[in-house]
Amino acid sequence: MKQPLGVILAGGQATRMGGGDKGLLPLKGGTLLSSVIARLAPQVATVALNANGDPVRFAHLDLPVLPDSIEGFVGPLAGVLAGLDWAAAQGADTIVTAAADTPFFPCDLVPQLLLASEGMDHPLALAATPDAERGKARHPTFGIWPVALRDDLRAALAGGLRKVVLWTDQHGGRTAMFPDEAAFFNVNTPEDLARAEAMQ
């Protein structure tokens, strides 16, 4: 199988941070987004950014910027679809997504997702971590997605589907378990950003 392409999901509105681009907030001498790029880029063939609005604000990153093709900020699945359409134009089979506000995700994210989806006709798996109450907590913005199902996803979104796990479950999506419960810590508030700055 060809190496997946990487898509960073930055299409949200960051309401709990007062709006704007969460990924451009400063972190450890760079930004949230530069931390995410540094982790994802070595694991994939190339990287693109899913973001809405004027792409010029990301010009310094020198990445393709992919807006949602569905209006109205309908959630991460719209970003996944934008990534799948871009990947199809590149002749790729799969994409791996990562959230722009989660700077410490595992450096073996892609190998573990590939392992979890091995043998599937259409590789589809989400990252998960242990959860005391539910057994496991899935992280729906971190997954491997097949280009072959992009039109199915488009139809699902047009029909009003918004919840990632509902769609992945419909297609037999698997999970890749990561032992560190804090691996997918994400920055939603100014307090979270201060905590991230203090993390190793």
Rank of each mutant, 00 (worst) to 15 (best):
P26S: 07
P26A: 08
P26H: 06
L27F: 06
L27M: 07
L27H: 04
K28M: 10
G29A: 07
G29F: 10
G30S: 09
G30A: 07
T31R: 00
T31G: 00
L32D: 01
L32T: 02
L33P: 03
L33E: 12
L33F: 12
L33Q: 09
S34K: 10
S34C: 05
S34P: 02
S35H: 13
I37P: 01
A38P: 07
A38I: 02
R39C: 00
L40Q: 07
L40N: 08
Q43M: 03
V44F: 00
V47W: 11
V47D: 03
V47T: 13
V47Y: 11
L49W: 10
L49T: 06
L49Y: 12
N50V: 14
N50H: 14
N50S: 15
G53W: 11
D54S: 11
P55S: 03
V56D: 13
R57A: 07
F58L: 01
L61I: 05
L61Q: 00
D62H: 13
P64R: 06
L66D: 02
L66S: 04
L66C: 04
L66T: 08
D68Y: 09
S69R: 13
S69W: 05
I70V: 15
E71F: 12
G72M: 10
F73G: 15
V74P: 12
V74T: 14
V74I: 15
G75P: 00
P76C: 10
L77R: 11
G79L: 02
G79P: 07
V80M: 12
A82H: 03
G83D: 06
G83N: 04
L84S: 04
L84Q: 00
A87T: 10
A88E: 15
A88W: 06
A89L: 14
A89T: 13
A89M: 12
Q90S: 08
G91E: 02
D93H: 12
T94M: 10
I95G: 09
T97G: 09
D101P: 00
T102P: 02
P103H: 00
F104S: 13
F105I: 04
F105A: 06
F105C: 07
P106M: 00
D108C: 03
V110Q: 01
P111T: 04
Q112L: 12
Q112R: 14
A116D: 05
A116R: 02
A116H: 09
S117I: 01
S117N: 05
G119M: 04
G119I: 01
G119H: 02
H122W: 08
L124S: 05
L126D: 05
A127K: 02
A128R: 05
A128P: 09
A128Q: 04
T129Y: 10
T129A: 09
T129S: 13
D131Q: 08
D131L: 03
A132E: 14
E133A: 15
E133M: 13
E133C: 11
G135I: 06
K136E: 15
K136V: 13
H139P: 03
